[in-house]
Write a protein that binds this DNA or RNA. Structure first.
Length: 256
DNA sequence: ATGGTAGAAACTCTA
């Protein structure tokens, strides 16, 4: 069983990459972010033709999440309960006894921005919700673009990034509060090469110079973490022509 | 010194 996450930065533009990637990476479930596609325009037929089901919660221009999967998800949720939000950033579904939550955490723009305050409030609401979800679903995976680099090893130049949005202490503290619920950052179960990132700015040849951050994560409940056999970043997808600024992350689980 | 690139959509905002 493989679970993936990929911020595609426009589903419309990245659809050819995604359709080429699906049979190669062969995820059973992949969470997508920044689809920037309203549900009426979601290319469901393309996924069905490739042998996948799909769920979407999107909007025009900004945000938008989707879950593409081999089997059909049920008990779908599209919001953090009790948290009013016009932005489409949440999609949850159940596959057998596996609960999957797809996240697109707000970027925050800068630590002095109103969007940063929104980000921290959003993360607080998320944490309260996930405390309930992890109690309810022993096999829970929370995948997505967290827009947080949790540790110095997740940043190409931690000194430069100290105090900046995506790596500021309040954001990292919010990430640690998620971990404190019992989640495991699956990428760090395994020894990983240095300079392993999931996002590189389009500007300043950041990818070529590997000036990246690891901000896309697969958090697993303890029961799922115990079944995880590998986690890797599909860096090649960032090297293609007209790429997303994010690479996919894939976790393999041995569910027996 | 606060640049630059990409996407969507509208002549700017977001990341």
């Amino acid at each position: 069983m493989k679970l993936g996450t990929w911020n595609v930065n426009s589903l419309k533009v990245r659809l050819p990459h995604l359709l080429a990637w699906l049979p190669n990476a062969a995820p059973d479930v992949v969470c997508l972010q920044e689809t920037k596609t309203q549900d009426a325009d979601f290319p469901l037929g393309d996924f069905e033709a490739a042998g996948f089901r799909a769920l979407a919660s999107g909007q025009k221009t900004y945000n938008g999440v989707a879950i593409v999967s081999r089997s059909t998800g049920i008990d779908v949720a599209t919001a953090i309960p009790g948290f009013a939000d016009d932005q489409k950033r949440i999609l949850a579904a159940t596959f057998g006894d596996l609960r999957v939550i797809c996240l697109y955490v707000p970027n925050g723009e800068s630590v002095t921005s109103d969007k940063y305050r929104y980000k921290l409030g959003w993360l607080e609401a998320l944490t309260a919700w996930l405390a309930d979800e992890i109690a309810r679903y022993p096999k829970l995976a929370v995948l997505g673009d967290y827009n947080i680099a949790p540790e110095a090893a997740d940043v190409y130049d931690p000194k430069l990034w100290e105090g900046q949005v995506l790596y500021s202490e309040p954001e990292r503290a919010a990430f640690r509060r998620l971990i404190a619920l019992g989640f495991v950052d699956s990428f760090r179960i395994f020894a990983q090469p240095e300079g392993a990132f999931t996002w590189w700015d389009y500007r300043m040849s950041a990818f070529k110079r590997n000036r990246g951050l690891r901000i896309d994560h697969i958090l697993l409940s303890p029961a799922l973490a115990a079944t995880c056999t590998s986690v890797r970043i599909d860096r090649e997808m960032r090297a293609l022509e007209r790429p997303s600024d994010h690479a996919p992350v894939i976790a393999e689980l041995d569910l027996g």
